[in-house]
Design a protein around this nucleic acid. Structure first.
Lengths: 208, 208
DNA sequence: GCTAACCCGTACATGTCTGTTCGACTTTCG
DNA sequence: CGAAAGTCGAACAGACATGTACGGGTTAGC
């Protein structure tokens, strides 16, 4: 949720009588600075203070509150921002095209790329925000994998003897685990995606 | 680390001059109540206040501080308590005996049983406590899996084309994921262990 | 049954975080 | 240029968590 509903209004448009006043360029700048700083801070420290976020954004604490009246509002903005940037990357993998196994490889590579930053954000938000809106967002990303796995099962490319939901969990769980291992230095950054794929494919393929 | 070093002293033993005074039975009762309550609270809410823990233990906040002078001390006690209870269960699986694949199945079943409660505790403690002592404890449990995987690789039962550390991560990651899925109602409790094994074995076996 | 150990509630000192207000200064934009 | 929009630091109020101190009541253990 953006702080106000008005944005990208063409310069020439006169504002309607009771509507919110236009937003200036430096305000826009502050807002993106805050959201991005918050994204970074929350990723590495779930309980950062608003003061710390403001400091990281190079902005006064009061300014932060001017745009995001509460911690929760800021959270929603951060999550929406992260999702908005992730969406097109995931879609670029075209998980609906070609053989299911190949599509999964593409989707995994894209997901890996996206996950690098926002790995902790979702778990954090799950606690701070209501678990309800969070679950929506998460499922929105889960859906791609679920749909692909479903298609692959019909084609005989993936196994059919385990619950579909569990297979989705398996994919996301190992995705997260790989990110954590890279961070901890236990897994080399460049080979992580291949390792992940080499682990997941045998686990998802039909047994025997 | 227990609050004091004296315990289980036979009733008849006179205490040595400068040593700590004996602990009474109700104190012992309070302590275990506190540790167990803390274990439950921390599992579902990482930042519970000391007051909340005391309340959950049915004990005054002051009493809590009487036994655990600081939050950190309480944490250590909780972790030690959890480990002490987990240790014999894991050893009962005898991961060193028999074929590696069979041993892994046994170890997974035991681990599953243990993990049910302490799933979140370690991740929490990693943040609150120094990452150093925590890493020791975690590795202590990891070691069983790592050693078993290492043996299985030598016997040809497990794959050799991925980093050993990553394979350990895979096991623990899916173990945690299964617990979370059961909690969320996405995976039936009784078939969870079998599902887990059916997923892990193909992922760890040599490919092709 | 007596004593020491233990428990409890209340209260206090301290610190941190949140959100808000105020007045003054700076930047944008027409 | 000039007014509106934005930003800033300082300071305040309220909430809440951590530890500590005190005094009166319970309970265990000899």
């Amino acid at each position: 949720m953006k702080p106000t509903e008005t944005r990208h209004r063409p310069a020439g448009a006169g504002r309607s009588p009771g509507a919110a006043p236009r937003r200036r360029a430096d305000a826009e700048r502050s807002i993106t600075a805050i959201v991005e700083a918050a994204q970074d801070c929350l990723a590495e420290q779930p309980q950062v203070s608003m003061a710390a976020i403001a400091r990281a954004a190079g902005v006064g604490r009061v300014t932060l509150y001017a745009h995001f009246p509460s911690r929760e509002v800021l959270f929603e903005a951060v999550i929406d921002h992260a999702i908005a940037k992730a969406e097109p990357v995931l879609d670029a993998a075209a998980p609906g095209d070609g053989p299911a196994a190949d599509a999964l490889c593409r989707l995994l590579r894209s997901s890996w790329q996206v996950l690098d930053r926002h790995r902790r954000l979702f778990e954090v938000a799950q606690h701070e925000l209501g678990a309800v809106r969070m679950r929506e967002r998460h499922d929105q990303a889960m859906a791609r994998v679920e749909q692909l796995l479903h298609r692959g099962r019909a084609e005989g490319a993936f196994r059919d003897d385990l619950p579909l939901a569990w297979m989705v969990t398996t994919v996301y769980s190992l995705l997260h685990a790989a990110a954590a291992d890279v961070n901890a230095g236990r897994l080399p950054q460049d080979s992580a995606a291949e390792t992940l794929i080499a682990t997941l494919l045998p686990a998802l393929r039909p047994p025997r």
